[in-house]
Nucleic acid binder design. Structure first.
Lengths: 234, 234
DNA sequence: GCTCCGCTTTTGACTATACAAATAGATATA
DNA sequence: TATATCTATTTGTATAGTCAAAAGCGGAGC
């Protein structure tokens, strides 16, 4: 284990064990240098890493202090459905229920902050995991941002996965809600009208332009999101 | 702007713009040294930061490459309800509906991976935001992990906030689900039986011991989680 | 009292260098 | 042909120093 990793984990341990509490002062670099008998660069690297993780705050002249914890900063890996199913060892297939090219329309344009005459590809897609309907995906793809979508049938690759190959490293915003299934949704998902469903809305940008907007509705009895937060090792 | 920040953002920009695609090779440190006319340490710092964010992968002898993007790694800040309401400028109050000290019981012990004879404090708490019921909190606090909870009435501070002061920097696991309100829940939340509700379950550990287990149920029409992912600047 | 100035501490950024570890690819050997 | 060995490349870690920027503190002057 390298020196700066040792410094990092030593301090991290003291913080997460409650030994050093929020607001407590951390030894200044110079003290850690003598304690660990290493150079200042090495100490600095460890403290900078802790600061970047939000576990300490650093101020010139005054020193470094244990930060106030964010109660629960959870990282959720929300993959696309086929990837997620594969990772979990389930069988996944999908059906395109609808595919139209049209203009955006006034209400949606407002919602997406895009011009109302923008051409979009509108998709509706059913995901089936282990033989049961698992999600209905209602998607809008901005055709000026992803012109190649116009020629893509999505017969062999689901839209979410296809987009990932076309437009990597986008910025995204998520909203997770609970909604009651309306009649149409309930029929498609083979569940009861009014059944609680988990809805994930995601808007994706690249270079400031909306790429896609999607609402994925899962039946509440067959789906959940899970995530873990813990101060991780380097 | 510092040199290493410039290197960082230059490369980041090339990646998120799609200019450099997953699998593409990044110039080796030596080339960046001559390009930016700086020392290797400075280049290394920038590349290490990119690697830590998961945007590139680095391998000795072969070089650094643009990573395959995780579709949506979203960071959700799930604060406690009172903090969240305050930040959003809403008025928050709460009521303790039930408070008992008892043994855990077989079924729950299994679920929490704790011994069934462990003494726990069981709380039920209603959160009211802007005058309307916003969440019902059903919580278990392990008394051997937080003995001080036995004497705490939670009259003036909600349990989540109190625990945060007692046990900072814990590890946590989250599950988000959609559930239908049962009769009791519906009555407390002043909504309809069967209404879609968003349920957040959180189990919290410190030093490997369970500290608390809580299920917070929100009425679906009054609550949602939101989070953003974007490759952030340094 | 108050304001401004300079001193000191602490972090931030950077350089030039050194050696170590990993490993892909070439070369030598059985 | 298959295997072992060498070599060059690239990253990883660390040192010992420099200069700069931020900011708390005390003192000088009013």
């Amino acid at each position: 284990m390298s020196i700066y990793q040792r410094i990092f984990t030593d301090i991290e341990t003291k913080i997460i064990s409650g030994d050093w509490r929020p607001g407590d002062r951390i030894p200044v670099e110079h003290e850690l240098v003598t304690e660990y008998r290493c150079s200042r660069m090495t100490v600095s690297k460890a403290l900078s890493a802790l600061a970047e993780r939000g576990m300490i705050v650093r101020r010139r002249k005054t020193g470094s202090f244990v930060a106030s914890p964010q109660i629960d900063r959870t990282v959720m890996d929300i993959q696309d459905i086929s990837t997620e199913a594969e990772l979990a060892g389930h069988e996944h297939r999908f059906e395109i229920l609808a595919r139209t090219v049209e203009r955006l329309g006034e209400a949606e344009a407002q919602q997406l902050s895009e011009p109302p005459d923008a051409e979009v590809l509108r998709l509706q897609c059913l995901h089936i995991v282990d033989g049961r309907p698992n999600a209905i995906e209602r998607r809008i793809i901005m055709l000026d941002a992803v012109p190649r979508a116009r020629e893509e049938s999505f017969a062999s690759i689901p839209p979410g996965k296809w987009l990932l190959e076309q437009v990597p490293w986008s910025k995204a915003k998520h909203v997770i809600r609970a909604v009651s299934a309306d009649t149409v949704t309930a029929r498609i998902l083979q569940t009861e009208r009014g059944e609680a469903c988990l809805s994930l809305i995601r808007q994706t940008w690249q270079n400031g332009r909306t790429v896609t907007y999607v609402e994925i509705t899962h039946p509440g009895d067959r789906f959940q999101f899970a995530g873990t937060f813990h101060p991780t090792a380097i």
